[in-house]
Measured scan of single mutants.
Amino acid sequence: CAFTHRPCSHPRLEGQEFCIKHILEDKNAPFKQCSYISTKNGKRCPNAAPKPEKKDGVSFCAEH
């Protein structure tokens, strides 16, 4: 993984420079932040999710 703030030993995603944990660092990657919002604390999930086809579409990470 090419994350520069600290060493990361996670494997890169195929065709990308970053792992799934750090892929949002790459603005050109086909990922965006997960659209899930917790009902308990109102916070948005920080994980990466595939970018949807539509610009305003929602997309969820593997956990959600």
Score class of each variant (00 low, 15 high):
Glu17Val: 10
Pro30His: 04
His64Met: 03
Ile23Gln: 08
Pro52Cys: 06
Thr39Arg: 10
Ile37Ser: 12
Cys1Asn: 01
Ala2Ser: 04
Pro50Ser: 10
Lys51Val: 14
Pro46Glu: 14
Pro46Gln: 10
Asn28Gly: 10
Asp56Trp: 03
Lys27Trp: 05
Glu14Asp: 07
Asp56Ala: 10
Lys32Phe: 03
Cys61Thr: 03
Asp56Gln: 12
His64Asn: 02
His22Thr: 00
Ala62His: 11
Leu13Thr: 03
Cys8Met: 00
Tyr36Pro: 03
Arg44Ser: 14
Ser9Ala: 14
Ala49Lys: 03
Arg44His: 13
Glu25Trp: 08
Glu17Asp: 10
Asp56Ile: 05
Ala62Lys: 15
Asp26Thr: 12
Val58Lys: 14
Lys40Tyr: 13
Asp56Glu: 09
Glu14Arg: 04
Cys45Pro: 01
Pro7Asp: 15
Cys34Tyr: 01
Asn28Met: 10
Leu13Ile: 08
His5Pro: 07
Phe18Met: 05
Ala62Val: 13
Lys21Met: 07
Asp26Cys: 10
Ala2Gln: 06
Phe18Pro: 01
His22Met: 00
Phe18Cys: 03
Ala49Glu: 05
Glu63His: 15
Cys1Asp: 00
Phe31Asn: 03
Pro52Phe: 15
Ser9Leu: 09
Lys27Ser: 11
Ser38Ala: 15
Cys34Glu: 06
Glu17Pro: 08
Ser35Tyr: 09
Ala62Tyr: 05
Ser38Arg: 13
Arg12Gln: 01
Ala62Leu: 11
Leu24Glu: 04
Ile20Asp: 05
Pro52Met: 14
Ser35Val: 14
Ile37Lys: 10
His10Lys: 09
Ala48Asn: 04
Pro7Gly: 12
Pro7Thr: 08
Asn41Met: 11
Ile23Asp: 03
Gln33Glu: 13
Val58Pro: 10
Lys32Val: 08
Pro30Phe: 03
Gln16Tyr: 06
Phe3Met: 06
Cys8Ala: 00
Ser9Met: 08
Ser38Asp: 15
Pro46His: 07
Ala62Ile: 13
Asn41Ser: 13
Pro52Tyr: 04
Lys32Ala: 12
Asn28Val: 09
Tyr36His: 15
His5Tyr: 07
Pro7Met: 13
Ile37His: 15
Ala2Asp: 02
Phe18Arg: 03
Ala29Tyr: 04
Lys51Thr: 09
Lys21Phe: 15
Glu25Phe: 12
Phe31Met: 06
Thr4Lys: 02
Cys45Gly: 02
Pro46Phe: 07
Ser9Tyr: 12
Gln33Leu: 15
Cys19Asp: 00
Pro7Glu: 12
Lys51Tyr: 03
Arg6His: 12
Ser35Asp: 13
Lys51Trp: 06
Ala49Met: 05
Leu24Lys: 04
Lys32Cys: 07
Gly15Leu: 02
Glu63Thr: 13
Asn41Arg: 13
Lys51His: 07
Val58Met: 14
Gly15Arg: 04
Thr4Leu: 01
Pro50Cys: 10
Gln33Val: 14
Thr39Leu: 05
Gln16Ser: 11
His10Phe: 11
Glu63Leu: 06
Lys21Trp: 06
Asp26Gln: 06
Ile23Asn: 02
Glu63Gln: 06
His10Leu: 10
Asn41Cys: 07
Phe3Gly: 07
